[in-house]
């Protein structure tokens, strides 16, 4: 048996449990240049046909940036959506269920996006 004070000591001042908060900021920092790059890239691709898009994704740098963008985006989105759910969903089962659904959806979308990028990139280089 530990007293409530004993359990709390050492856990204050961000020694543990700040990982989500910290990762939200790290992914935010990564997303600043990545999203600006992506918007400029999409503007230049406006109205392009499928071959132009595939050719663009087939270059190493766009492919790498796209994969990084997808990882940072879905990590950031998953953490952000979880905070929103935890703020507004008060019933425990609804909260847990929504957090699980959001996590899985973000993971699935990230995998789908990364797979699409890699399949185009590897097809062009081979």
């Amino acid at each position: 048996m530990r007293s409530p004070l004993g359990r709390a000591i050492g856990l204050g001042s961000a020694k543990e449990g700040v990982e989500d908060w910290w990762l939200q900021r790290i992914t935010a920092l990564a997303l600043v240049p990545l999203t600006l790059w992506f918007v400029i890239a999409v503007i230049r691709l406006a109205g392009a046909d499928v071959d132009t898009v595939r050719d663009w994704v087939g270059h190493p740098l766009p492919a790498i940036f796209l994969v990084l963008l997808l990882i940072a985006t879905f990590w950031h989105a998953s953490l952000g959506l979880q905070v929103v759910i935890e703020d507004y969903a008060h019933a425990e089962f609804a909260k847990l269920g929504l957090v699980i659904v959001v996590r899985l959806a973000c993971f699935a979308l990230a995998v789908a996006g990364i797979f699409a990028v890699l399949s185009m990139a590897l097809e062009t280089t081979s």
């Binding site: 499928v50 985006t73 952000g80 959506l81 789908a112 996006g113 797979f115 699409a116 990028v117």
Partner: peptide
């Protein structure tokens, strides 16, 4: 805006998967 962007990621993935799938 964060919620809207989260929904918008579906569009991003759809676009990439469609480009990978073909014309």
């Amino acid at each position: 805006a964060g919620l809207a962007l989260s929904a918008g990621t579906i569009l991003l993935v759809w676009w990439l998967v469609a480009a990978a799938s073909g014309p």
